[in-house]
Design a protein around this nucleic acid. Structure first.
Length: 312
DNA sequence: TCTGGGGTCCTAGGACCC
DNA sequence: TCTGGGGTCCTAGGACCC
């Protein structure tokens, strides 16, 4: 069990998202531990997004607690101030706003804005603020890429910004090789998608308190997950194209095996369950203790139904 | 940091067909 | 029988983000 998030007070003690609960309790003995409440987060999120949409801007929802605001804005600082005030008045919540010429800059600016402030990152102050940062500070560069870049002698944003894409191609492929140095120079996407995205997949997974060794029990637990998932997907009015099964063993070694549904996309939960069980039986070694089981359904991009627009 | 749950996108290689 | 190229579908796996 790990913390999904932590208050700023708890963060001061070294507790953050992903910290095991045991470690969190050790570092911060006075911490209050709350269960997750997805429905409450969704409701609060809806209210915040509705507040933002009242401004004459484009709003792209980016998860529960983030949004990109787009537009040709004369005075972004004034806009941000107005938005923060409106969100506070209408929802009682505090938010931070980062301003930039693209999503990447805005995203990083928002870090500087926290907690509960406004910060602007531009071509003008990008270099000053970012040049000496580790490459991992860039949005989209994680620990793995950071390590690979370090092996090439590129550890800071400035190093990467000056790197020759040709020198990165072998390691990262054509696209990434071109993208990474641009990212380091502050480039980024500017598109704002106001329409809700059509989900590509839906999944369920569970880590067991005690590893599972009994094959029958493993199959039963997977079947139960598949049934829950099937219900979700049907409720959402979507069709399933592929079913993936995920198994994590005691060693933390994790495998995903996938199968395309024969005969085209399905809405039949029984078929989802059956496919998951087949994949489990045919493609996994179940002689080792299992720590986690998961099922994922990949979804057809066209909703099911007979041409109606019941998803409005 | 003995390591949750829910997602997205990209790449590489094999199979198969023309 | 061997050879080559291109296209498409499929799976595995890597990586990142919240």
């Amino acid at each position: 069990m790990v913390a999904a998030g932590a208050s700023y007070e708890a963060r001061a003690f070294g507790v953050r998202s992903g910290t095991p609960l045991r470690a969190a309790a050790r570092r911060c003995p006075d911490a209050v531990f709350l269960p997750t409440d997805p429905a409450a987060y969704a409701a609060a999120s809806d209210r915040v997004m509705a507040t933002l949409r009242r401004f004459p801007v484009l709003v792209e929802v980016w998860g529960w607690d983030e949004a990109f605001i787009g537009g040709d804005i004369d005075d972004p600082h004034a806009l941000a101030t107005g938005m923060r005030a409106a969100v506070a008045t209408e929802t009682g919540l505090s938010c931070s706003i980062g301003i930039g010429h693209n999503k990447h800059q805005a995203k990083i600016a928002a870090r500087y804005a926290k907690p509960g402030g406004i910060f602007q990152l531009t071509a003008g102050n990008w270099t000053e603020l970012m040049a000496d940062q580790p490459v991992g500070a860039l949005w989209g560069v994680g620990p793995r890429t950071g390590r690979k870049l370090a092996e090439l002698g590129l550890s800071t944003v400035a190093d990467l910004a000056a790197a020759d894409p040709a020198a990165l191609v072998d390691r990262f492929g054509e696209r990434m090789a071109a993208w990474l140095p641009a990212l380091a120079r502050g480039a980024g996407d500017t598109g704002i998608a106001t329409e809700p995205r059509m989900a590509r997949s839906r999944s369920r997974e569970v880590t067991f308190p005690e590893d599972l060794s009994d094959r029958t029990e493993i199959a039963q637990r997977l079947a139960a997950l598949a049934r829950e998932l099937g219900r979700d997907v049907v409720d959402a009015g979507r069709r399933v194209t592929r079913v993936a099964v995920k198994v994590r063993y005691r060693s933390f070694f994790t495998q995903i095996r996938i199968r395309t549904i024969h005969g085209g996309p399905t809405t039949d939960p029984a078929e989802i369950e059956r496919t998951a069980l087949t994949v489990l039986a045919e493609k996994f070694d179940l002689d080792r203790p299992v720590r986690l089981l998961g099922v994922r359904a990949d979804l057809a991009l066209e909703p099911c139904g007979t041409g109606g627009s019941d998803l409005g």
